[in-house]
């Protein structure tokens, strides 16, 4: 008996290999054994196969497949937003949206009383007074362990507990690693775009606003660069004496400042703009977010921005504007 199944029309899917380098699990990438095998591949009988659906990436002799979707995998130096989920012996467990939870050691945070202070046993006992379960913080990846989990640090005034704002999660794929991940936006609002896709939109703190007014004394060139948001070496850094002063108990306070209704409105508008970009699957950066914000102002009421079709149209407008201005 001939076993065959009737096939109405065979789609020519296998012919796409030459045009684009999209591969799916189990697909043969190469039978050349000289390639080194990276993430997203496996090796069987001198042949390299893909293990995820994604695009092939070749760097020198290293062959890897970047999946279309997937959890965030940390890299040293990444600026993250995370949430404390557990307080343990000398360490906090932090949810960063990755495959593993990150750890934040007691030794890698700034404690009240300056940086040169030794950590004592009493610090260990009152860890929950600094950061407790559910607290949000921004931090940097200090190092990676062999299984891919991360160790964080907050040893800079940029990092630490988050207040006065709202948390938004977007797919980590949409946020591209850049020099700077915290931005001051129009409307007296700031944002931290964590590389892990967790974002924090908050009221621009008074001290940084004061910095801006103090910078009037600086040269014009410096001023314009600060206004356009370009990072300059030394910008935003503080002297040692400032550091002593700022690292008081205030940095671990749970109290929000009084926020005016207009600030709250602006924050929620930015939140919806961020979600619009995420819904349309558009890579997120400061420029696009500000453009989305400007477009959203045309809709007036913030409540309108909850609607799916409004979000879709905001996303499309951002892309259209970008094309008009020549890839901004």
């Amino acid at each position: 008996m001939i076993i065959s199944i009737s096939v109405p029309s065979k789609p020519e899917a296998s012919d796409t290999k030459a045009g684009s380098s999209v591969v799916t699990p189990g697909e043969l990438i190469t039978d050349d054994p000289t390639w080194m095998r990276g993430h997203g591949t496996y090796f069987l009988n001198d042949k390299t196969y893909s293990s995820v659906a994604g695009t092939v990436l070749k760097v020198n002799k290293l062959l890897s497949v970047v999946p279309f979707k997937g959890r965030y995998s940390p890299e040293t130096g990444d600026h993250l937003v995370g949430r404390i989920i557990d307080v343990g012996q000398k360490r906090w467990k932090v949810d960063i949206g990755g495959e593993h939870d990150a750890v934040l050691m007691l030794g890698s945070v700034n404690l009240p009383g300056g940086i040169l202070r030794r950590k004592s046993e009493s610090d260990e006992l009152q860890m929950r007074n600094f950061l407790k379960e559910g607290d949000l913080l921004n931090a940097e990846v200090q190092s990676l362990f062999s299984d891919g989990s991360a160790s964080l640090h907050t040893r800079s005034l940029k990092y630490g507990k988050l207040r006065n704002g709202v948390f938004v999660a977007v797919p980590s794929k949409l946020i591209v690693r850049a020099k700077n991940h915290s931005h001051d936006l129009p409307g007296n609002v700031s944002i931290i775009l964590g590389v892990n896709g967790y974002c924090w939109i908050y009221k621009t703190p008074l001290s940084s606003a004061a910095d801006h007014s103090a910078s009037t004394a600086k040269t014009n060139a410096e001023l314009s660069s600060a206004a356009s948001g370009n990072y300059q070496p030394g910008q935003g850094s503080v002297s040692i004496t400032r550091l002593e002063q700022e690292s008081s108990w205030d940095i671990y306070s749970d109290k929000n400042d009084a926020l005016s209704a207009s600030i709250k409105d602006t924050i929620s508008r930015y939140k919806n703009c961020l979600l619009s970009l995420s819904q349309c699957n558009i890579g997120i950066n400061e420029i696009r977010l500000v453009r989305a914000y400007e477009i959203s102002l045309g809709y007036g009421d913030t409540n309108l921005l909850f609607r799916e079709e409004v979000r879709q149209s905001i996303g499309e407008d951002v892309i259209a504007q970008e094309k008009m201005r020549g890839a901004g």
Binding site: K10, P11, A13, T16, V22, T24, A53, G54, T55, F68, K69, K173, L174, C280, N281, I282, G283, I319
Partner: peptide, 18 residues
């Protein structure tokens, strides 16, 4: 074959704009 086709279509959609 049918599943593979769908995975490629969905992957293309995800890639489009980034």
């Amino acid at each position: 074959e049918l599943m593979d086709l769908q995975v490629r279509v969905a992957g293309g959609q995800l890639q489009e704009r980034q």
